[in-house]
Design a protein around this nucleic acid. Structure first.
Length: 306
DNA sequence: AATTTCACG
DNA sequence: ACGTACGTGAAATTA
């Protein structure tokens, strides 16, 4: 890796995490206490400030070491991390009612591999890394309100290839295309996009004469119900988790949320009970046409619990 | 004070 | 012909 980029990467870790976080330890509790903002985002997600605990590194080997700093309250506790698997694509499958996408999830398939198999007309176990990567890019793009240019920019493929990939995608999942068009049409009519729980995002530019401005609003019309309904679901789950923990008089506590994940400081004696509570609450928060998959892990720090 | 860069989902 | 991926926050840099 070039020396300047390496320096910048390490400097980011040093300034944003290593040196900043210890300053925010509360002298009474000995812990860091973030603030979760309930009314900041456009889609209904939470955000986190002072410090932001929703952007602690995990992707890079050196960055992920930061997660070792996040530990249970004492040696009677262990961290439990539970995260929704592919929540946004599952919500897309539900909202669009696309049969192929619903079936892939019902069969518990690797959605990117399954998509690749369909796009490139090969058997799932013949999908190459390259093909899976392209399918993954397309699946991400769909959630964002895809454009050929955007997909090409992000994957490095040519504009032409990106366009062809999107065409194949819509042949593979025809009702996803129909849902996207319907989302835009509905937003034009109503002036807003809406989540499963009825949260509205007003889109003042949805009928703008400026194509660029309108295009952005159209992508918002597609993305907001997806991202926002995911936020609805985890919030319903969190309320249920907290209620149940208190009803049962447990000592375990929910301590963090990172958009599709909740982290519990779990009393070791309660771990099986808590796992069941978290799993049930997350899976059943909002019943959909597709089942929700939840991955859970425990560990003596946040890195281990992943 | 606004913009850029980079960390996350 | 045009210009484009969704949602955030913190630190550093630019103006």
């Amino acid at each position: 890796m070039p020396a300047i980029l390496e320096f910048r990467g390490l400097n980011k870790l040093l300034n944003t995490y290593v040196e900043a976080l210890p300053k925010l330890v509360n002298s009474k509790t000995g812990k860091i206490h973030t603030s979760y903002n309930q009314a900041v985002t456009a889609t209904g997600r939470l955000s986190s400030t002072n410090p932001n605990l929703q952007n602690i590194p995990i992707r890079d080997d050196k960055g992920k070491i930061m997660r070792k700093a996040f530990i249970p309250s004492d040696d009677q506790h262990i961290l439990l991390a539970a995260d929704y698997s592919q929540i946004e694509l599952r919500i897309m499958a539900h909202l669009s009612e696309d049969e192929a996408m619903l079936e892939a999830f019902q069969n518990d398939e690797d959605i990117h591999q399954s998509t690749a198999a369909k796009l490139f007309k090969v058997k799932p176990d013949e999908v190459t890394r390259e093909q899976r990567g392209q399918a993954k890019g397309a699946n991400f793009g769909i959630i964002y309100g895809i454009s050929a240019f955007g997909l090409a920019q992000n994957t490095g493929m040519s504009n032409k290839d990106a366009k062809a990939l999107i065409d194949s995608y819509f042949e593979t999942y025809p009702k996803v295309k129909a849902y996207m068009d319907a989302s835009i049409a509905k937003a034009r009519e109503a002036g807003y996009a809406e989540t499963i729980m009825g949260r509205k995002r007003f889109l003042k530019d949805i009928n703008s004469a400026n194509g660029v401005v309108r295009g952005a609003a159209e992508r918002n019309a597609i993305n907001a119900p997806i991202q926002g309904s995911s936020a609805d679901m985890i919030k319903v789950a969190m309320v249920k988790i907290n209620q149940t923990i208190r009803e049962q008089g447990l000592k375990s506590r929910m301590i963090m949320q990172v958009h599709d994940e909740v982290i519990i400081d779990a009393e070791k004696n309660e771990i099986e009970k808590v796992k069941n509570i978290v799993l049930e609450s997350m899976q059943k928060a909002i019943p959909l046409k597709v089942k929700m998959k939840v991955d859970m892990n425990t560990g003596n720090d946040w890195l281990e619990a992943h």
